[in-house]
């Protein structure tokens, strides 16, 4: 289970503070697939970062009773100046995994070949997504946090994600921030609409999508 309990988040902006999220309450369990909806700047990334422990809430708390991936997104998680292999080695070390197993899975999943010997800053968004997914799938988390990035992959990557996440790991939890309504419709059983800093949770995906499209 992961629970957000009355989360507030504000950022320093000039002399005052800008409130991004207020009083967010959200609980989900293993097997839940949570779709995060909201306009640009509604706080989707911020919420995912807080669930992943990358940024801290201004007040409130997050209870994590299952292991949770780092937010897989366009930024973060990697050292740009290091190669794909070096990043994999670093991540294997800090998560206490065997590097050889991790490497063979990543080589297999990402199909990046010799590119893994290049610095990550030279990667395209799709290549970064492949690396991030490869590593986090190799580590095996109970909950995966995905910030948009699944959308940038090509057809081959989307298919791989489908088998690895939605078929082989269907018992895991997933939080998915995306503007792709089809994704949410196909995979999610819970939807959260963020507007004006508040979160509304819907069991009915179609209802949530209708509200999101009217925003």
């Amino acid at each position: 289970m992961i629970a957000c309990e009355s989360l507030y988040k504000s950022y320093r902006a000039g002399h005052g503070r800008k409130r991004v999220l207020e009083n967010i309450n959200l609980t989900f369990n293993r097997g839940d697939r949570v779709g995060l909806l909201g306009r640009n700047g509604a706080g989707k990334t911020t919420l995912i970062k807080m669930i992943g422990g990358v940024e801290m809430p201004t007040s409130g708390r997050i209870v994590r009773e299952m292991s949770c991936s780092w937010p897989l997104g366009f930024n973060g998680g990697f050292q740009g100046s290091l190669t794909g292999y070096d990043n994999a080695r670093f991540i294997a070390r800090i998560y206490g995994r065997d590097y050889k197993d991790l490497r063979s899975f990543v080589e297999d999943f990402t199909e990046l070949g010799g590119q893994l010997r290049m610095p990550v800053k030279t990667y395209s968004a799709g290549m970064r997504a492949r690396l991030a997914f490869g590593l986090s799938l190799a580590i095996e988390f109970d909950c995966y946090l995905i910030d948009e990035v699944i959308m940038v992959g090509d057809r081959n990557f989307q298919l791989k994600c489908h088998t690895e996440i939605f078929e082989k790991r269907h018992d895991r939890a997933l939080v998915l921030a995306t503007h792709g309504a089809d994704y949410i419709r196909e995979y999610c059983n819970l939807a959260v609409v963020l507007r004006n800093g508040r979160a509304e949770v819907y069991q009915d995906i179609e209802e949530a999508l209708a509200i999101y499209e009217a925003l």
């Binding site: 992943g52 990358v54 780092w70 973060g76 998680g77 990697f78 050292q79 740009g80 800090i94 998560y95």
Partner: peptide, 10 residues
């Protein structure tokens, strides 16, 4: 080192 803070144990 910001990007490494994505990993909660760091």
């Amino acid at each position: 080192n910001g990007s490494l803070l994505y990993h909660r144990q760091v």
